[in-house]
Design a protein around this nucleic acid. Structure first.
Lengths: 216, 216
DNA sequence: ACTCCTCTTGTCCACGTGGACAAGAGATTC
DNA sequence: GAATCTCTTGTCCACGTGGACAAGAGGAGT
């Protein structure tokens, strides 16, 4: 039925399909048969590429985040620090955050996923620390301890994302305001400097807009 | 087999058992049969009390949080503001946070759970705002907008909890430090004033210590 | 044309799932 | 003591699950 693909392509196709389903249904609810149906093959084939369901979802998460973050670092180095900072603080689209939140709880039962999560979280934090360093170097802001400030702001962004995306307690504008305000305060930036520059979800989304949910 | 209980007792027993399992396995993995086995009854009985699995877990979460928070408000009003603040910011035990994190992602697929989550999150935030008000009234701190500061600190605490409990990126001391420092900074409190007073998890835990995990 | 080799399929299994339901057990009421 | 009501049980169902496996399909290399 399905035309024969190069193994690498097929693999990637499976990982993509997996993430699409994880974004919609959560890690725990994605079955091999769902993934197979999404790809358009028989469920036995999924097992041919990934020995267990756990490995499949962990690898899919890792690949997806890797893709999501690819190139961001170079972009962040090129644009001016304020824009890089504002982007870092606010541009993660909603469906990506659902996956992160789900990963937080799923990681307790999936060591591979935990490892991936730890690695990428640390990576994101380092990137923010680098932006803060550039900010300090160029005299646009001040930070005694970029790593500590990055850690605090990372936590704040995650917590605000929960309030916005998961609980729906605040809208996007409020979420931006809280985060920008805290960053300006913490980094000695004149209030009102940080603004959202990129439109939401400039990067590719996992869940097609056709699925019916709003993009934000 | 199981001795006959008053309906209300039996109900509560089922809700307790459910939360114990949710804390261990996550919302998505708790089955009616698991709950029945935990209580020591037949799985049909669970259905007698709760028509669907969704309602069971949502109600269990609601009841558990209600119990967890009961009395805290009165305590917070009695003790001095610094202690109330420090307690609010840091005393939630690990297994409780696992449940909260799990609820964040589960809420996307369980409207009742979302409603409960929204309600309790708002409640927690209000309680913190009240503590901040008392702080300002007594001249121990300053806040132009207690609600906004409470929102920001709530988000920070949640985000730090993710880094500590879920990802294991930082230890408890670091987590405390970040949160206390941010609160002191935000509320005009002299650095180093806030300290952890209560031992961890003074309140009842959902997962027995005998389960093997550390209490923190 | 032939042989490999890997991708791909279809089918099988034992098991667990949420849900349904009739029958039984216990207390309460009359 | 009999009727009633609700809690409780055991058993049944159709379905979906992860996993296993033999057989087939289709290129690549010779």
């Amino acid at each position: 039925m399905a035309t024969r693909l190069h193994p690498a392509e097929r693999r990637e196709q499976i990982l993509d399909a997996t993430m699409r389903l994880v974004a919609r249904d959560g890690f725990a609810r994605v079955t091999l048969r769902d993934v197979a149906a999404e790809v358009g093959v028989v469920h036995g084939l999924i097992r041919h590429y990934f020995p267990t369901r756990e490995q499949l979802v962990a690898e899919a998460f890792d690949a997806a985040v890797r893709t999501e973050l690819a190139g961001d670092e170079e972009v962040a180095e090129r644009v001016e620090p304020f824009e890089a900072l504002a982007d870092w603080l606010t541009t993660t689209p909603s469906d990506h955050y659902f996956v992160w939140m789900d990963a937080w709880s799923e990681a307790q039962r999936n060591p591979e996923l935990l490892a991936s999560l730890t690695h990428h979280h640390r990576d994101c934090e380092h990137r923010l620390a680098r932006i803060i360093e550039r900010l300090t170097e160029s005299g646009l802001g001040a930070s005694d301890d970029p790593a500590a400030d990055a850690k605090m702001l990372t936590a704040l962004v995650d917590g605000i994302a929960v309030q916005h995306h998961a609980i729906g307690l605040i809208d996007r504008a409020q979420a931006d305001r809280v985060v920008y305000h805290a960053a300006e305060d913490r980094l000695g930036i004149r209030p009102g400097t940080l603004t959202r520059s990129r439109p939401t979800a400039a990067r590719g989304q996992w869940v097609a807009a056709a699925a019916g949910g709003t993009a934000d």
